[in-house]
């Protein structure tokens, strides 16, 4: 029974992954014959300024986006777990970005972030002269962070909501009887009992942000600009392989990204992955 699943897994997931390891040792332009070059692709990548820029961009993206989106998602989830009017509508409104295509969202945000777009129009109302968000290297990646947080928070909110609803009400009732105020109930009951959910949210967040590609690609027109400020590791992989025909370099970065992702996942696992005790 498991054979088809294993076959599919090997064909579409494990196979290509192993092939990336293989390719990282070769020089190939997709069009010519590949030849073995040992570890020289890695030597090139580690000496490449552009690679370290991409590492910095990807890491700072993950460090800012993951905690922010987790906190925002938790906050909205707790809020929408109350008996609010129009609760269903609000849940839908927050979840909506998660079911939209990120390409479409990116294009909408190109207009929002335009020098004369809605965002700067709103800022002008309160007397702030807004920057040229996507054309300014200082703001381009931050703009994408804001967009990403907006997009993914809704999805993780739903995950948190389901986690919240799995917490038995009687624990809260008992705590209330013992005189715990609402902050204590939140920090001593909700947060610890949500740990498995938080673990899932953080792991998915870390993996998702380390793999960020589409938003950078669309908002920078595929260049990772201005001045490489939005070049992420996956965008760099794409450029090396498909734009510049340097498959070996791209595959080497892929292998390095695999290592980074694994290390980050192990760290999160150590921190949040322990089973919880009531």
């Amino acid at each position: 029974m498991t054979l088809p699943a294993v076959l599919v897994l090997f064909l579409f997931t494990l196979g290509p992954a192993l092939y990336a390891f293989f390719l990282s040792l070769f020089s190939w332009s997709l069009l010519n014959k590949m030849h073995y070059v040992g570890l020289s692709n890695f030597a090139f990548i580690f000496a490449s300024h552009l690679f370290w820029t991409a590492v910095w961009n990807t890491a700072s993206f993950a460090f800012i986006v993951v905690p922010t989106q987790t906190l925002v998602a938790l906050f909205i989830a707790v809020l929408l777990n109350q008996n609010l009017p129009a609760r269903g509508f609000l849940r839908l409104a927050f979840f909506f970005p998660a079911v939209s295509s990120s390409a479409v969202i990116s294009i909408i945000f190109m207009w929002i972030y335009n020098k004369f777009g809605i965002l700067n129009g709103l800022l002008a109302v309160v007397g702030i002269h807004g920057p040229n968000w996507l054309a300014n290297p200082l703001f381009a990646l931050k703009s994408i962070m804001i967009m990403n947080i907006w997009t993914t928070s809704g999805y993780f909110m739903v995950v948190f909501l389901s986690g919240l609803q799995a917490i038995p009400q009687n624990i809260y009732d008992a705590a209330e009887m013992d005189g715990a105020n609402s902050w204590q109930r939140f920090s001593r009951i909700t947060v610890p009992l949500l740990k498995p959910t938080t673990f899932f949210v953080v792991i998915m967040g870390v993996i998702g942000t380390l793999q960020m590609f589409d938003q950078s690609f669309i908002l920078s027109g595929g260049t990772g600009g201005p001045l490489h400020s939005t070049t992420t590791l996956v965008l760099l992989i794409y450029q090396y392989i498909f734009s510049y025909g340097k498959v070996g370099y791209g595959a080497a970065v892929t292998v390095i990204l695999f290592a980074f992702t694994m290390i980050a996942t192990l760290i999160v696992n150590r921190w949040l992955g322990k089973s919880i005790e009531y």
Binding site: L30, L31, G221, G222, T223, F242, S243, G245
Partner: peptide, 16 residues
């Protein structure tokens, strides 16, 4: 469609 070197990126994959 697409900007920049997208045309040739797509062609490259088609050649492969």
């Amino acid at each position: 469609s697409g900007s920049g070197s997208n045309y040739e990126s797509v062609l490259r994959t088609r050649f492969v």
